[in-house]
Design a protein around this nucleic acid. Structure first.
Length: 271
DNA sequence: CGAGCAACCTGCATGC
DNA sequence: TGCATGCAGGTTGCTC
């Protein structure tokens, strides 16, 4: 699934295609996602207009007049806007048809994503209320993460991927950011210096903004709302490069498992 | 409380 | 060709 740059790319692609459109019909073909898709969408949404599409963490927020539809793409979720005449694809689970004849379609082979509905402030929703700061927020700085990490024994990579610490840093960009910050991914989070966290904050910010500018990374599943791949793959320095030479020192890139996730690093450049 | 891990599900690459 | 295995961009919720 998409990491934050892919979600943001989706948001930017989808918003102009759905903003101000009025819902004609909602069809749920398979409501068994991470949580059951609320059936009340079928009766609630028709007649309502979409305001805009926001984002908090990897959740997309579709503002309707009476509430907010919260969409998470999980590992393999995609959104696209089609003509309603266009043939449905395998794994299209939910379809929101607009009065102009177009349709917003949610496709997700693994069904790890979710579609939620709330009448209240979406930021107060139980899935969003305890999330850490956005990576581009000033709150996400070296003092904050250094302080939060003290006495934590967990490896710094899973620590960085913990949405209570900071949102939006997934498995690919966590390896990339640690490489650029020259921090070994298995080091206990509590043993990483403030200066090193300073470099990490910089690295995360730069990598995520470059990835957003490139339209996201494509490994295999992600395509943006126009169906085109992202172009960040060629920028990856360690992810997926096990056994190949580090681009800085020719040491072979290593692959280990941390928190059940594949992790790539250079044992010479990262300490 | 923190740490570690199983689980959710399908598709694809690999090896026998 | 078929079948088994392992892996995949996320997150929750369980154990200890």
């Amino acid at each position: 699934m998409p990491e934050l740059p892919e979600v943001e790319t989706t948001r930017r692609g989808i918003e102009p295609l759905v903003a101000n459109k009025v819902v004609a019909q909602v069809l749920i073909y398979n409501g068994s996602l991470r949580w059951p898709v609320p059936q009340e969408l079928i009766s609630l949404l028709p007649g309502q207009r979409i305001g805009g599409v926001g984002r908090r963490s990897k959740y997309l927020l579709f503002a309707f007049s009476s509430g907010t539809m919260i969409v998470h793409l999980g590992m393999t979720g995609h959104l696209r806007v089609d003509s309603m005449q266009t043939e449905k694809r395998k794994h299209d689970h939910v379809e929101i048809i607009f009065t102009d004849g177009t349709a917003l379609r949610y496709n997700d082979p693994r069904r790890f994503g979710s579609i939620l509905w709330t009448l209240a402030d979406p930021l107060q929703h139980v899935r969003l209320s305890a999330l850490g700061p956005e990576p581009f927020d000033r709150q996400f700085n070296a003092s904050y993460i250094h302080k939060l990490s003290r006495n934590r024994k967990v490896a710094v990579k899973p620590f960085l991927m913990d949405a209570h610490v900071v949102v939006g840093v997934g498995n690919i960009y966590a390896s990339e950011a640690l490489y650029r910050a020259r921090i070994a991914p298995a080091r206990p989070a509590g043993k990483v210096s403030k200066a090193a966290y300073e470099r990490l904050i910089q690295a995360v910010t730069i990598i995520l903004s470059e990835a957003i500018a490139a339209g996201g990374t494509t490994i295999k599943d992600f395509a943006n709302s126009e169906g085109k791949p992202g172009y960040f793959t060629q920028e990856l320095r360690v992810y997926g490069r096990a056994g190949q030479k580090c681009k800085a020192c020719d040491t072979l890139v290593k692959q280990i498992r941390l928190g059940q996730r594949s992790t790539f690093y250079c044992s010479n450049c990262q300490k």
